[in-house]
């Protein structure tokens, strides 16, 4: 790859102005570090993965509003966690986390357990008992 082949595509939504380092050949055939603004290929691949998380998050939010899942399920998806990761972070066994994803069981949780979840998810206990009415922007 030569310097003029280093992609310099405008993908501000993805890169937010941050450049990535690339090694490319200068006209004397010597490798130099060339900052790249972004690459559409890179951006597309990233968006696919990012959107997968967004879809899961939005599905969970709707399921909570429909009363099928507890708000814990939404915040777990928001933090890109699984019951296993959330369980480890909160210090609660994964099988219990899975039970707590059911609204009727979640409603009976003690404040101490809710506190542990809120801490693990970096939100307040008040936030944990509801989900946003509208989808999160982006």
């Amino acid at each position: 790859m030569k310097i003029n082949e280093v992609p310099q595509d405008d993908v501000p939504d993805y890169s937010e102005g941050i450049k990535k380092g690339n090694y490319a050949l200068d006209d004397k055939g010597k490798y130099v570090m060339v900052p790249s603004k972004g690459w559409v290929v890179d951006e597309m691949i990233n968006r696919m993965a990012y959107d997968e998380y967004k879809v899961k998050e939005e599905e969970a939010r709707k399921a909570v509003l429909a009363g099928q899942k507890s708000p814990l399920a939404y915040y777990m998806e928001l933090r890109q966690m699984t019951p296993e990761i959330l369980g480890k972070t909160a210090g609660i066994a994964a099988f219990r986390v899975k039970r707590h994803l059911r609204p009727e069981i979640f409603a009976r949780l003690k404040p101490s357990v809710l506190g542990a979840y809120a801490n693990a998810l970096a939100i307040t206990t008040e936030e944990l008992i509801t989900v946003p009415k509208n989808p999160r922007e982006r």
Binding site: M1, G21, N22, A24, S36, W39, D42, I45, N46, A49
Partner: peptide
Amino acid sequence: LAHILRLQEEMGTGGAGFRFM
């Protein structure tokens, strides 16, 4: 296929899965 590309290009590889480095 997209997942291969992610590991090849996206995660700070300097492009082409470290081959240029």
